[in-house]
Design a protein around this nucleic acid. Structure first.
Lengths: 336, 336
DNA sequence: ACACGGGCTACAAACGTTTTCCTGTGGTCT
DNA sequence: AGACCACAGGAAAACGTTTGTAGCCCGTGT
């Protein structure tokens, strides 16, 4: 039923070899026969079978991406950029959602591996060792995670935290809560690292709470613990958590930023439109997605590794959830 | 380099045929040899080549989904649900983002078609005729679009609009603006249809503006035209547009819902956390995604068409952007 | 003792490409 | 005029599976 290369060959009165060449190595076949072949091919609506092609070439024309949560606009942001870039380069995109489960991440990569030319792994909870193991099976590029010897597009989370802490310190905050994301997420570790270093430097005290699921409900849950911690500012692992915190604080009648300052991370669209608009750190999501794909594609093309990492800057965006701490700590909600 | 079925066969001292059967039709092979084969296969880490398999079986184990915008949480919501369901059924998911360009949508389907067993088309701008044409090439299921003879999961947009208008009418609104989405999106037509019918019934006047790109910036742009239209309520095509409107109104110092009521559509997470929280219509996104995949998979399994449509209810969620219209129309921003 | 059949397994064809190797043709250089 | 070469295109192998068919062995019924 479907039209094969044979059909085209017959109608164009050439061999299948010629059809193949006419379509994929134009310089190897005479101009006029090529025209003829192409004409027939388009008339018949011929599309080569990717299965047959990849069986012989060993390439699939696909690339895979696995993310921890398709419900998080941060990841769909990179997904969108990645999809566009991949498609522009003639690749189709396979997507897997691991639901933040490292085991699922690994399995996803394993399943994809035979079906793609390379996979882009986003901010995984997988252990480093496992990552290099996986990288032996398929070409792997990381996003927001640094592993020795593996290509990666990285956004400077630590730097973002430094800016954030500097901002809070300048406002006068001396004791802040950090609402942690997934324990062994690289992003979380980076953010914590940047946070600690900057806190030491600016002489602000950090009380770490968590880990929490890096989702809206995670923020809701975290909010209560944060207010109990007797701090003047809350630094959330990311924007959606911050939104959850914001909602919970509103419910409890706690004024932001009057009584408590709050910051997010990622600068999702919604950070700008929530009320009050969220002070956060902008991540170069588009560039990272684009860069990651370029890295991956480059890795496929060349023979020599050419492994490299792409470092992208972040920057603080001050909106309306941060202000000077209240004069006296009259909230009395602290447990001690 | 990669381990093939031959390697397994040799090590297990059976023929390749037996290996194949041992792995995919267990009842056809003796218990003990099957065990042996499986042992060898796992020891070697054998994974059958999807390309070779699909070349002979004609099935790929993939399904495709094309959406208009991966940046819209509505679509990533269905994407997430779809991905989960597909994976549970042993299918991998190919995703395409058309950027709301009908031509891109078509091309995406065309490109995917050889690579998937079926595709799920989300709320496309493609014309009906073209859809049935595409459906001849591959099995197609629609989401949020009704086309005769094609399986679809549908959410009752029109019904949602009816509830919305009833709500507004009850509050006392008599003249509302509708901020239209993409002109030939089925969802937009449905929503407009429901809106008009309900408006007639409740005796409220509708002024239609648009179409606008159904994105945040689309809403920002639409806001000004809406306030110029001298209405007491704005019905936006969807939530992100509504958020754009909200932001713009805030910038202009127009109070919502005091001076102007506003409604969205979709009930994204962010509709609940923006300020004021958005009155909107909840869409059964998860169920729709799940249902669409089930429909698609069913269509693949059976020989007889079994084409059916799945209709899912929507419901109004009243939050804080709707209120009674101001007593006198003192805004004076109308152009006449 | 023989025919028969059921259970397992091996052989080989087939899927639709790409690619290697080869042949033929005509032109150019010495 | 002969040798050589570039160019076009064909035949066939190969990729890694699945599956139809055939063969073998053994048990059972006559």
């Amino acid at each position: 039923m479907p039209v094969t290369i044979r059909d085209v060959a017959e109608q164009a009165r050439v061999s299948v070899a010629t059809v193949s060449r006419a379509l994929s190595s134009p310089h190897l076949v005479n101009h006029v026969t090529r025209e003829r072949v192409i004409a027939v091919a388009t008339r018949l609506g011929y599309r080569p079978s990717p299965a047959a092609r990849s069986l012989i070439t060993g390439r699939t024309g696909n690339i895979g991406i696995v993310v921890p949560d398709l419900g998080n606009p941060f990841f769909t942001g990179v997904l969108k950029s990645v999809q566009a870039r991949a498609r522009a380069a003639g690749y189709a995109l396979l997507v897997g959602d691991s639901d933040e489960d490292p085991a699922a991440e690994e399995e996803l990569v394993r399943v994809m591996t035979k079906q793609v030319d390379g996979v882009l792994l986003c901010s995984p909870g997988i252990k480093d060792g496992l990552i290099v193991t996986l990288a032996e099976t398929t070409s792997l590029t990381l996003l927001n995670r640094r592993v020795r010897g593996i290509g990666a597009a990285l956004m400077d989370s630590a730097g973002g935290m430094r800016q954030l802490v500097a901002h809070l310190a300048e406002l006068g905050h001396r004791r802040c809560a950090y609402l942690g994301g997934p324990r062994n997420s690289w992003s979380n570790r980076e953010r914590r690292r940047g946070l600690r270093a900057a806190a030491r430097q600016h002489n602000v005290e950090i009380v770490e709470i968590g880990p929490f699921p890096p989702r809206y409900d995670g923020g809701v849950a975290a909010a209560d613990l944060a207010v109990a911690a007797d701090v003047t500012a809350i630094v959330a692992y990311n924007d959606i958590m911050a939104l959850g915190v914001l909602a919970r604080l509103r419910d409890r009648g706690i004024d932001v930023p009057g009584e408590l300052s709050l910051t997010g991370f990622d600068d999702l669209v919604f950070a700008a439109v929530c009320m009050p608009p969220l002070t956060t750190v902008a991540m170069p999501v588009r560039e990272a997605g684009r860069g990651a794909i370029d890295l991956l594609l480059g890795q496929l093309g060349d023979e020599r590794p050419a492994i490299s990492q792409l470092d992208l800057p972040t920057h603080l965006i001050v909106r309306a959830t941060t202000a000077a701490p209240p004069k006296r700590r009259a909230r009395g909600r602290s447990s001690r």
